[in-house]
Design a protein around this nucleic acid. Sequence first.
DNA 1: CCTCCTTCATTCGGTACCGAACAATATCTA
DNA 2: TAGATATTGTTCGGTACCGAATGAAGGAGG
Lengths: 148, 148
Amino acid sequence: MPHHNSAGAWAKRYHLASRAAIERILRPYDLGSTQWYVLHQLVHHGPTAQRDFPKLLQIEKPALSDVVSALVRKGFVAQAPDPNDQRQRILSLTAEGKDLWQRLPDPIALILDIAFEGVDEDSLSLVVNVLQTATERLNKRINEGTNA
Amino acid sequence: MPHHNSAGAWAKRYHLASRAAIERILRPYDLGSTQWYVLHQLVHHGPTAQRDFPKLLQIEKPALSDVVSALVRKGFVAQAPDPNDQRQRILSLTAEGKDLWQRLPDPIALILDIAFEGVDEDSLSLVVNVLQTATERLNKRINEGTNA
DNA sequence: CCTCCTTCATTCGGTACCGAACAATATCTA
DNA sequence: TAGATATTGTTCGGTACCGAATGAAGGAGG
């Protein structure tokens, strides 16, 4: 926010801008950004247990449930019970989902080209290091229990 | 996301972690992070026209409408029509809102302490520069019209 | 005075996230 | 084998965001 012109505030602004850009690219295909990541996983690694996605996508289970049910509703993903464990669900691409993927641009590549073009590798890796460290510290605090 | 271990992905993760941390701090007070920023503005700059907030908080009008109606519902903010222009609304703190602010910790200061403690000024300003440039490029593209 | 246009705010439908609580299934243990 | 425990996924209620459409008020020109 404007009164805190810090790395944190710019991380937020960057995140919102990139999400808006990605969703603009994906809108004609009726896909959201996280939905795209789910398809990406299924395309590159085949059918995957739903229980693995929260770690892969860095989201919580309820958020994943929303995303999956949207993809199932749209017919791009099938959600089948695991025969060996009735609790688990296996996600896989439908024929329609495979077909969609063929027509899809890669929003991440487009965004990175626009956003970080011309920035040298050293600067970029410094940015990654600072943000990664900050994220790990925050997550550690969050998991340690309530403080304030 | 894991397969794109880039500055962009870490900006997203940082943003989500910091929002989670801020909301954890604010939860006991029944406040969300954007709601806190609205109160912050009203505390430090007095009654403010609602039309000014989208630029101040970098959000769109419908998102602001949600935030304002939550604050009004909770009794922390009053929303009065501008006598000179019936279209506009003036936001101001209620007595209850002022009272709440006295009891509130500053979540931003707490987060910045945790996240960026020990990071030198030069690194921090490089991070700000890279993310700021990236954000401006993305926003420029978004506003230029649809491409992809 | 009466259209036309702009501005401000809301509503609507959608995505993306959270924590808490729940149901179902599996497993471990007494 | 019965009961406690752990895992998986969903539902519920909430925040925070978007674009498109709508309504309400103000201002400009004929």
